[in-house]
């Protein structure tokens, strides 16, 4: 045993060299620090209502906020941990239907139904996650797609519980004794949620845990060779991502007052992936921008609604072909080139 101890002393000997002064500075400029980003976002969210002049504007802002939060959760999984999901809408729908069913059919208080549904979705993700996350690349895409479709089919077919394809109504959310009815009330609630998830995500990324997750995107062998428990890390981010998506799904249901199985369908999953890809894999700020663009696009396109599928398809192709790192990175690259 004594020999080992000697060796550990030796170990600390060779890691204690002189400190490089240059290194001390690279802890990050203040604008790169997580807390700065959070503060800037908080400020923007607080000021945004100045630009929102109608109830419809608030309505759009709420939708963007919900989608942005979901997109951030999906980006944690796809962008940071490098695990594709083509079934994320399934978790959104689980949260939405869970909240609706528990509160309206079983009389649970709405906030309890909301939190329980998110926890339930997280539990499901935790249970199915381990086997599914063993898959890689295309197979993972297909596996998550299958998972999403199964959720969709259950929701569509269990009419007695979910109302089937006709959908079901959702009760009004009461918080702190007041009823949240108008989009303006909802704006502040969703803004707080977005800020919380944004804060949590940036904290995660700028920490050992986040670095370990990012390592999953690199060569398979690396993570294991530095002692990262790969299956556990994947499962953690999958569960977290599902929990956030389900929670926001619950809020979406409560806000909309009515839900239908299309929440869980394949195209909704694609739409969510599109938000992440347009914003850029691995960019939390990008996800907010991507969610805003994809949410607002149909509003611009309403005049020509029949073009929606075509335009979405073209955007998908265009983004992947011409700006595979997302809109934000592409614009930053362009800006740098112009400055030079």
């Amino acid at each position: 045993m004594s020999k080992v101890e000697v060796k550990q002393k030796a170990t600390s000997k060779w890691v204690c060299g002189g400190v490089n002064e240059h290194q001390r500075r690279t802890a990050g400029h203040f604008w790169q620090r997580p807390i700065t980003n959070v503060a800037v976002l908080a400020l923007l969210l607080a000021c945004l209502p100045l630009a929102l002049t109608s109830g419809f504007h608030y309505h759009l802002a709420v939708l963007v906020g919900i989608n942005a939060t979901i997109a951030i959760s999906l980006n944690l999984l796809m962008g940071y941990a490098g695990q594709v999901s083509l079934g994320h809408a399934g978790f959104v729908a689980l949260g939405a239907y869970g909240t609706a069913i528990l509160s309206s059919r079983y009389g649970w208080p709405v906030p309890l139904a909301l939190v329980s549904s998110a926890a339930g979705a997280a539990l499901i993700a935790f249970v199915v996650g381990r086997p599914i996350l063993r898959l890689k690349g295309y197979y993972l895409a297909l596996g998550t797609l299958g998972l999403g479709m199964i959720i969709y089919l259950v929701i569509s077919n269990e009419v007695w519980l979910t109302g089937g394809p006709d959908g079901m109504p959702v009760p009004v959310l009461e918080l702190f004794g007041g009823r949240l009815t108008g989009p303006a009330d909802w704006y502040w609630l969703i803004a707080v949620m977005l800020l919380l998830v944004f804060w949590l995500s940036t904290n995660l990324i700028h920490a050992p845990l986040g670095r370990a997750l990012r390592a999953l995107e690199g060569p398979e062998a690396v993570a294991g060779s530095v002692g990262i428990d790969v299956p556990r890390s994947k499962l953690l981010v999958f569960t977290l991502s599902a929990a956030i998506a389900a929670l926001m799904g619950g809020f979406l249901a409560l806000y909309a007052g009515f839900i239908s199985p299309s929440l869980a369908d394949f195209l909704h999953s694609i739409e969510l992936a599109l938000m992440v890809l347009v914003g850029g894999l691995g960019s939390v700020v990008g996800s907010i921008i991507g969610a805003a663009l994809i949410t607002l696009l149909p509003q611009v396109l309403t005049v020509v609604e029949e073009y929606e599928t075509l335009v979405y398809g073209l955007i998908l192709i265009g983004v992947m072909m011409f700006m595979p790192r997302g809109l934000l990175s592409s614009i930053i690259d362009l800006w740098r080139r112009i400055k030079r």
Binding site: R211, R214, G218, P219
Partner: peptide, 10 residues
């Protein structure tokens, strides 16, 4: 590793 395995995005 025999051929360096590093995370290119870090």
């Amino acid at each position: 590793f025999q051929t360096p395995q590093v995370c290119m995005h870090m």
